[in-house]
Design a protein around this nucleic acid. Sequence first.
DNA 1: GTCTAAACGAGACGGTACGTCTAGTCTTAAA
DNA 2: TTTAAGACTAGACGTACCGTCTCGTTTAGAC
Lengths: 198, 198, 198, 198
Amino acid sequence: MADKHAPDATRRSQRSRLAICEAALSLVAESGYDRLTVEGIAARAGVGKQTIYRWWPSKGAVLLDAFTETMVAGEWALPDTGDLAADLKTVLRATVDEFADPGFHAPYRALYVAMADDAELAAGFTAKVLEPGARAYAERIRAAQACGQADPGCDARLAAEALLAPFAQRWLMRNQPLSHAFTDSLVDLVLAGLRPRG
Amino acid sequence: MADKHAPDATRRSQRSRLAICEAALSLVAESGYDRLTVEGIAARAGVGKQTIYRWWPSKGAVLLDAFTETMVAGEWALPDTGDLAADLKTVLRATVDEFADPGFHAPYRALYVAMADDAELAAGFTAKVLEPGARAYAERIRAAQACGQADPGCDARLAAEALLAPFAQRWLMRNQPLSHAFTDSLVDLVLAGLRPRG
Amino acid sequence: MADKHAPDATRRSQRSRLAICEAALSLVAESGYDRLTVEGIAARAGVGKQTIYRWWPSKGAVLLDAFTETMVAGEWALPDTGDLAADLKTVLRATVDEFADPGFHAPYRALYVAMADDAELAAGFTAKVLEPGARAYAERIRAAQACGQADPGCDARLAAEALLAPFAQRWLMRNQPLSHAFTDSLVDLVLAGLRPRG
Amino acid sequence: MADKHAPDATRRSQRSRLAICEAALSLVAESGYDRLTVEGIAARAGVGKQTIYRWWPSKGAVLLDAFTETMVAGEWALPDTGDLAADLKTVLRATVDEFADPGFHAPYRALYVAMADDAELAAGFTAKVLEPGARAYAERIRAAQACGQADPGCDARLAAEALLAPFAQRWLMRNQPLSHAFTDSLVDLVLAGLRPRG
DNA sequence: GTCTAAACGAGACGGTACGTCTAGTCTTAAA
DNA sequence: TTTAAGACTAGACGTACCGTCTCGTTTAGAC
């Protein structure tokens, strides 16, 4: 029936919305997700708590909005120089560098945490961040398959996961170095599995 | 120098320790990690809160102890029938089935969450759970390399990660099915990358 | 300088305030001061603990507020029939009777306890309860001095204390009966000291 | 019936007993009664908690023992120079001075507190400390009555209370000075009530 | 250009859980 | 058997946030 009182989005204060997103990102970068509180965000943003609860269901949702808006530029296509291995290595090296910035990896890690307990947020994070990334990799691999650089019988999507998941895992665990050498080897391993078969 | 007052471990009550572990596991299976509280554990275990705080630094650490003790049998060697692909598929299918049990995957997921915010716990979880698993896979792959079933030039450890991480990722995200077909394909993909090169 | 964050008294919930006072009085009457807890008051009042800590610094302060509001009618003048001895005896007998009610003497005793360790509370209890009482006695005695019934050279305030303190002492100690006979004798003794001197 | 297991007092460690008493007195003088804890006493005395619980029912009881043993010399007779007023003033002035020492008044105040909630302790404190004092005053007054210095029709015990209680009250409340002038006036007032009647 | 309904800042409220502290009981080893 | 030591169950402490609920105060769209 009636959804509580759906607030009137046209009257929403953009000023507050931005302040909340910025506050959430800066706080999570400073102190980590478990010390991030709605009250803290409201205080830093100079905003009433209700203004947060009116527009977001949880602090995880705030973070997801803030992250996707600020961090995720929007374009997701991988470069295609004609050399699949080189392109993948280039992009993964850039990603390694990106994850060195606490302003980036702190909210990213926070979203990983929040996701595990909150299926709705997991769906959102997947749809807005993870899935587009995986799809871009799969697309690039499919292009290589199309021009004979990779075995067309292989599942491009699975190969994309085989590239991205070990990266994510190492980053999440923090127990092994996340280096260019690592991503390069990973590309080599997965691409070996994609060699066109004679 | 002195760490506060290190409690005397020889006087520790095993009765309480076990009750705490069992309570933690059952509660996390019932309600999820973010509804798991130290007070709840203490209440269900029939134990004073201080007894938990005396021996563990956080609820995540309790869960790690409880999980490794109860869930992780101890032996980690993979079967070796001589057929690498078959062996890997068998084990991964069994793991898929294992993760269908909430009594198993709930604490596992909880540890993933806790880990992301707590580097110390991450180290413990890695050392006691993830690392032994990865090592067992790498060992099996090395055995295959030794008898010519796999390219000896490949990094066995990296291949192990390429098998395990996509599995973990899908499970964590819940957005794609975690089926035998998936793990079988994954084995095929990674093993294709390990084909002995002519 | 700034007192933390002084809460906004205009928004204070009177409903909660009254419930807290009533809960404090009933609990102390039932179980005594040392079994009185802030949590217990909050629970019985149906109130969050923070609502108590926001407005009072200690359980003693709650009790003082509750007591002065409920028990202390406000008017403190002693009757003046022209007969000082009779008037004092009447009032003290009434006080003896009043102290037989646990609803009255329990919080009173509690405040005595709390006072001894808390100088601020002592000041409050003195100012709101003890001092007005002593002053009323002193005033009545001064009236008697003015009309020649008592020696004008005596310190009326000291005489008031000589009446009230032995009463308080016996009540506090519980080792001797607190009877009308006792207060009558006390009045006779002190008034003998106030006889107009020839 | 059997009283639990009455411990064997003949084997009691005097060393521990003394250490406990000293620890209790010094701690209460330093921090006040409400910060006095059994654990604190045990720690400072270098004694197990059980050793305290074995021999005393409460921290108040420890304090009473410690106080009576250390502070109350044992002899309670007031001087008798033949001049009642002078003798009383001398003794009360000395008492005023005694109460200026925190080592004395801190445990005394603590016992007042403890007493109000604990009838058993009240009986003990009364019997060992207050009552002997009151009796000594009453005795001195009776001596004066015997030699015609005071009205024999008056209740000497009541007069003693009229001297001691206002003193105790002022000390307990801390809101009025506790001076020699005050005790002198008090003696004068009460003694006026005891004047032999023509 | 008001008027008026909303979104807003602020923050009090009923609650839950935190991590700490102490009570009083129980167990162990030493003397 | 008493003692020092200290782990145990129990539960209150005072604090931090939760998410809900008023309060006036902006503020922006409809009159």
